[in-house]
Computed example of a mutant assay.
Amino acid sequence: MIRLWPSIDPNAELSDDDLAGCYAYPDGLTAPWVRVNFVSSIDGAAALDGVSGGLGSAADKRVFATLRELAQVVLVGSGTARAENYRGARRPTRGTDVPPPIAVITSSARIDPQSRLLTDTAVPPIVLTLATAPAERRAALAAAGADVVVLPDLTPATVLAELGRRGLHRVLCEGGPTLNNSLVAADAVDELCLTVSPLLAGAGAPRIVDGPDGAIARKMELVTALHEDGVLLLRYRRVGPIG
């Protein structure tokens, strides 16, 4: 993997420490900084056959692992957790000896207590849900080891406030598209890390954001561009509204 932008030596292979430097969070965070990570085909598809794995590559997996290693919490919607058969993160967060917890947003608490999210993890997942979710589901998840948190609503502001209260400021959001859309609409996306896979997927696949309109277009600046075997790995940071 080489760095195209900003380039020092276009032929220099990036070490793991170099890669971590390319994706470092800002220093001194006192509130959640939201980084969204997604993979897309060159014609904009966010999934093949309903999952993102078909768009992946060795380069994407390496960056994915690095982003998790830098994060303090991984935020995901329950639909994506089910579709992708989520399990707990493996690598410890840099500077610690434990992996980041997976924080799952679910209004219904419809998560299988026997899923890998709860049975194949080193740290308890955080389940962010509502009082309207069936009490028996919430109790079953708590009994299976989940940290069940009942919030007044599941808006980005409330969810991020809860993560901030826990000191989880380096947030990595892995989707899905509906959650991404709510974050964009709330102007809560600080960074987008986008892997562009050299595939044409055709019509019918979702975009990396999906849901009701209402977001304000935001200008993003390119921070880093990496390349390996035809795969582009781009990191954008928010600048401000357009116009």
Rank of each mutant, 00 (worst) to 15 (best):
W5R: 14
R3A: 04
G145A: 04
L222Q: 15
A201V: 12
A157Y: 02
A83I: 12
T30W: 00
T119A: 09
D213C: 08
G21E: 06
V98H: 15
V51Y: 00
L141M: 13
A46C: 10
S182R: 13
P125N: 03
R170P: 08
A186M: 10
A131K: 15
N180W: 00
L141W: 10
P113Y: 09
T106A: 05
S115W: 10
S15Y: 10
L141Q: 07
V34N: 00
D229C: 02
D120P: 09
E84L: 08
A133L: 09
A143K: 14
G54E: 06
T158W: 06
E69Q: 13
R35Q: 12
A122S: 11
R238I: 11
A188Y: 08
R137Y: 10
T93I: 00
I105N: 04
A140V: 12
R238Y: 07
L128H: 05
V104I: 14
A142W: 07
A89Y: 00
A203L: 13
T132R: 15
L233Y: 03
C193A: 14
Y86L: 03
E191N: 02
S52M: 10
R3V: 01
Q114G: 07
K61L: 13
L233F: 11
L233A: 03
L168G: 00
D27T: 11
A188K: 11
R68G: 03
R68I: 01
T66R: 07
S15Q: 05
A46W: 00
D187A: 15
A185V: 07
A203Q: 13
V171G: 01
P198I: 01
G54M: 12
P92W: 01
V98S: 14
V76W: 05
E162M: 01
G77L: 07
W33S: 05
G167T: 07
Y25S: 04
P156L: 01
V36H: 11
Q114N: 14
R87E: 05
L29K: 08
A133C: 09
R3W: 09
S40R: 02
L160K: 02
A89V: 01
E191Q: 10
E69H: 02
A122M: 01
G211W: 03
A122R: 15
E69S: 13
E13W: 11
G77N: 07
A144F: 04
H169M: 06
A205H: 15
A188G: 06
V223G: 11
T155Q: 14
V73I: 08
D97N: 14
G145D: 08
L19M: 12
V63M: 13
C193W: 04
L234K: 11
T132A: 15
Y236P: 01
D49G: 14
L192V: 15
V76L: 11
G243H: 11
P152I: 03
R165Y: 01
A133H: 09
E174A: 03
P125E: 04
A140E: 11
L55E: 02
L154K: 12
A142L: 03
G240K: 13
V73Q: 02
Y25D: 00
A46Q: 02
A142H: 08
A31P: 03
A215F: 11
D112W: 09
P241H: 06
A24H: 07
G50K: 07
T158N: 12
V196M: 13
P101M: 01
R90M: 14
P26N: 09
W33P: 05
E228Y: 06
G79C: 10
P26W: 05
V150C: 10
L67S: 02
D120I: 06
R138E: 02
